[in-house]
Design a protein around this nucleic acid. Structure first.
Length: 426
RNA sequence: GGAAGAGUGGCAGAGCUGGUUUAAUGCACCGGUCUUGAAAACCGACGUACCUUAACGGGUACCGGGGGUUCGAAUCCCUCCUCUUCCGCCA
């Protein structure tokens, strides 16, 4: 959520940024609507405060008058207060509805893209920030896609998952399950070594947390909702981790906060179909190690680079073919100011699969979360938040299985062997 | 799930038979005096959000969340949440 004052002061900057997201001039009028709503809010509050102040003064006088036995005078004031109160009541209703209207408008405005974000409307317009080094792997005509390999070596049973729950909930087994566990261990250890504090959070959150990171209200239908308790299954560990410091004022010396967390992720993925959901390509439940940072605003882009370096290191160690994209305005997430996507090449499917998304949200999340720090100037400022997948498991699995298949079996990358306890799947 | 008790400012802790509470007091933190320096002592400042003001300042709200009673609520009532203790159930 953008700050109203920011909209007031930097409207031109915001308009330039939103144009990159494909916003029409017509749509920009929402910015003026916000300012107008905020003006009304201020006027109503001023009026309301004056009235409440009068009521407070009268109440004090009434108390004094009763003590000195001047009941008649007190009763006159009481009647006057009654009229004030009636007025205050209607003012309060106006005030509340204006505030709700303002918030509703603010929820509709996405984050302002960073200058580096290329213009564009679809994923076709994303900029290849770092291309694959070397040739695309050629696995030959015999190469099998991961779902065939998974079945051949009994690593994943999609049908059993359907029986137990439904499509998109696979059962991993044997070396498939162990490989997945090994990857989680590897990712967490790497994050720990990079200075991230490991957290093990709830996988179910309350409504306030879902709202805090922006899943609500815009992505309501994408989350599984446990209605009896009004809890949401997390779509990513970003939600519980980022909410760690909701409504807090941190000391400047406490920054940066660096967290890593493993979690299952639950996504309804309504509307997905076809090749996108084949095999492990898109699931309703998958596992992921996430990295999250809350940092001083002056350092956030430097930190973003470091996070990119961390994710890149993981892919290099796993010896997977990858490239890095810088998302264009049209493909950029609602809350993000700058996002880099990591894709690994799936040698048998002959397509790129997104395995990580690393973003700087600047103050967009922290404003809604009221996550601040006290600066050396003694004033409070919003922190910048960033997060990234490091990494999401299924597509890494898919890519590993496909790219590492040989006539003798699937070769486990060197770096994982101490975690798996085996070096080949055959 | 049942019963009882409790939730107050960074922490501790009064107030809780409704009206000098603009929330006492202590500790911590910050600034100052003193000191070669530190400690101690003393003095001062010391919550959050919003409105208003050129500024100084003024105002409103907030004592777990929400609602109610009243001229007036930290204080009374309702409700929800959390914690503690006991009982029940249980990995």
């Amino acid at each position: 959520m953008l700050q109203v004052n920011f909209i007031r002061e930097q409207k031109d900057t915001i308009i330039t940024g939103l144009k990159k997201r494909g916003w029409s001039d017509e749509k920009m009028s929402i910015l003026d609507q916000i300012i107008q709503a905020d003006d009304r809010r201020k006027a109503l509050q001023t009026e309301q405060d004056v009235l409440l102040s009068k009521i407070n003064q009268h109440s004090k006088s009434i108390g004094d008058l009763f003590k000195s036995g001047k009941q008649a005078e007190a009763n006159v004031l009481k009647e006057e207060v009654a009229t004030f109160k009636a007025k205050a009541q209607t003012l309060d209703e106006d005030f509340k509805s204006t505030k709700a209207e303002l918030e509703n408008l603010l929820f509709q405005v996405p984050n302002v893209p960073n200058d580096l974000v290329p213009a564009g409307t679809t994923d076709e317009d994303n900029e290849v920030f770092k291309d694959l080094e070397g040739e695309l792997p050629d696995l030959g005509a015999e190469a099998q896609p991961h779902w065939e390999l998974a079945s051949k070596y009994q690593l994943i049973d999609f049908a059993k998952g359907v029986q137990i729950t439904g499509a998109g909930f696979p059962v991993y087994m044997g070396k498939g399950a162990r490989l997945q566990r090994a990857l989680v261990q590897f990712f967490l250890n790497e994050a720990n070594d990079a200075g991230y504090l490991e957290l093990n959070t709830p996988f179910v959150v309350n409504e306030e947390s879902a709202r805090g990171t922006g899943q609500l209200p815009d992505k309501e239908g994408q989350m599984y909702h446990a209605e009896v308790d009004n809890f949401y299954l997390i779509p990513t560990a970003e939600v519980p981790v980022t909410n760690m410091h909701r409504d807090e004022i941190l000391a400047e010396a406490d920054l940066p906060k660096k967290y890593t967390a493993f979690s299952p992720c639950f996504r309804r993925e309504a509307g997905s179909y076809g090749a996108d959901v084949k095999g492990l390509n898109r699931l309703h439940q998958f596992e992921k190690v996430e990295i999250v940072q809350m940092v001083h605003p002056s350092t956030s882009y430097e930190v973003l680079d470091k996070m990119i370096g961390h994710v890149e290191g993981l892919l290099q160690k796993l010896e997977l073919p990858y490239r890095i994209l810088r998302l264009c305005g049209g493909d950029l997430g609602f809350t993000s100011a700058l996002t880099y996507d990591f894709e690994v090449y799936s040698g048998a499917q002959k397509r790129w699969l997104e395995v990580s998304s690393v973003s700087n949200f600047e103050t967009f999340q922290s404003n809604r979360l009221k996550m601040r720090y006290k600066g050396e100037d003694g004033k409070k400022h919003l922190v910048h938040t960033l997060n990234g997948s490091a990494l999401a498991l299924p597509r890494i699995m898919a890519s590993l299985l496909e790219n590492n298949q040989t006539s003798g079996g699937i070769v486990i990358p060197e770096v994982l062997r101490k975690y798996t306890g085996f070096d080949i799947i055959n």
